[in-house]
Each structure stands twice: as C-alpha cells, then as structure tokens.
Amino acid sequence: MSICTPPVSHAPLAVACLGHNLNVLCEKPLALTRADALRMLRAAARVGRHLLLATKFRHVPDVVRARELITQGEIGEPVAFEIDFSSKVDMSERWNSRRALAGGGVVIEDSATILVSASRGLVGRIDLSWSLNTGRESFVTVYGSGGTIEVGWRGSQLRQAGRPPVAIGTGYDKAEAHRRMLASFQALVAGDAPPWISAGECLRTVAAVEAAYVSLRSGSWVQVDMRRARERRPAFEASA
C-alpha cells in the first residue's frame, strides 16, 4: 500500500493498513509528531510488516554514488555539509501550505534555514524555500578533509585538491527516482531486497523537524535525543 495523502492522515491510514497485514510505503513526512510516528512503527513491528518512508532521493544514482565515495574515504573525514532545496513556487492555493493538513516544514514557513552541529565536529546548513531561487547547481555538498562532493540537479562531481573534478553522475531525474523506489519496495515485499531506510531513521526524520520548531520558538540550540531510535547513531543539535 502506498500512502500519498496529506500528512495529517498518514498515521491513521498507515495503522489501519498495517492492521490488515499490508506493507506500507508512506510519503514524507512520516507523521506530524514523533508520538504518531512511534505509533505507526510499533504497529508495523507488531504485525511483522514493512513501513517505509518514501525517500526517493536515496534512489538517485548520483546520491548513491556520493554515499559510496564518502564511505570509501574519497573525501577524507566529512567536516561540513550544505543542503539547498530552494525554488520560487506559488503555494497560495496548495493544500500542503495549510498547517492543519501538512503540519510543518518549508511549505508552511515559506523559507527556513536549519543549522546542525553533530558529534565528531560535523556541522551543516540546510536551506529550504518556496519563495527564493538561489540558483545553486548542487542540492547537496559534502566537504571533507581531503575533498568535496557536489550532488547536483544536472550533474555531480568529486573534487580533490590538485586534481581536476571527476564526474560521478548525470543529475536528478524525478520520474526515474520514483520508479527505482517503487521497484525497490516491490523487491522488499517479495523478500528479494533489504529496506533502504530503518525504523530508527524514519523516526529521526520526524524528530529533526520537531527539534527545528522547538529551536525556532526558544531561540536556542535543541539537542535531538536519538537513543529512542534504538540505533547507535551520533547525537546532533539543531537550530532554526
């Protein structure tokens, strides 16, 4: 079952589908609150079915290749990252600009900048906007002690000191990313492939958005407690 409805309905629909022993692929965000996300994940665990977040960018070949190169140490130790999803779009008549249906996120706030400080010294900046067009060619840039990886809309490259840039991909194809994600979900249900995102990671996506809003209201850094995700991952702080 693929849930592509407004986020406010994700939790009740997913729990109902799981109650009928259906595997569920759910659009982003998984839920409006961490409590609802936990309820969904526990429902999946209770019946032994899959509940996955529809993270299509994990199926973009350029993103997959960039992750491989970082894991292989091609840019050394990652020290900083930048994410930029900015485009001028009229959201005035769209349902996903209504907080009651969509919850939070950039579609509600118009523009947002989130600063991240993770363990081991990693820092990051996330820029999101429906009212600004920054014109940047890359939507993800990762800086390392020995190089930089830029993942872009029309191409991606690896940069290392003293060497010419090396192309590592041809860019982003939205339709192809969706096709790859759906094929992966079918393979998962058939038992031929592992899940591309864990329950803990699904929960962290909701926790990160919640932390950004708490930071916005308090005007201070907010630590995101990842221990409930039951995975050993670095803790991080967020500020919006």
Results as ranks from 00 to 15, higher is better:
L32T: 08
L32C: 10
L32Y: 02
R34G: 09
D36N: 11
D36E: 15
M40C: 13
M40W: 07
A44N: 04
A44L: 09
A45M: 09
A45G: 14
V47T: 15
V47C: 12
R49I: 03
H50I: 03
L53T: 14
A54G: 11
T55V: 14
R58P: 00
R58F: 11
R58L: 14
H59P: 04
P61R: 04
P61G: 04
P61N: 06
P61D: 10
D62V: 07
V63M: 11
R67D: 14
R67V: 14
E68S: 08
E68I: 09
E68Y: 03
E68C: 04
I70T: 11
I70S: 08
T71N: 07
Q72H: 08
E74F: 05
E74A: 09
E74V: 10
G76V: 11
G76I: 10
P78F: 07
V79F: 02
A80V: 04
A80S: 13
I83W: 00
F85I: 01
S86E: 13
K88A: 12
K88L: 12
V89Y: 10
V89T: 15
M91T: 15
M91H: 07
S92Y: 04
S92C: 04
S92H: 09
S92Q: 12
S92D: 15
E93G: 06
E93P: 01
R94T: 14
R94H: 11
W95K: 05
W95F: 10
S97I: 04
R98D: 14
R98N: 11
R98C: 05
R98P: 01
R99H: 08
A100V: 14
L101M: 13
L101E: 15
A102K: 12
A102M: 12
G104C: 07
V107C: 09
E109L: 02
E109V: 00
E109N: 10
T113M: 03
L115R: 03
S119M: 10
R120W: 08
G121Y: 07
G121A: 02
G121E: 11
L122M: 11
L122H: 01
G124Q: 08
G124K: 05
D127G: 00
D127P: 00
S131M: 08
L132W: 04
T134R: 08
G135L: 03
V142D: 03
V142K: 02
G144C: 04
S145P: 02
S145W: 03
G146C: 08
G146T: 12
G146E: 15
G147P: 03
I149K: 02
I149T: 02
E150D: 13
E150I: 02
V151G: 08
V151F: 06
V151Y: 07
G155Y: 06
G155Q: 09
G155N: 08
S156C: 05
Q157R: 13
Q157K: 11
Q157Y: 09
L158V: 13
L158G: 10
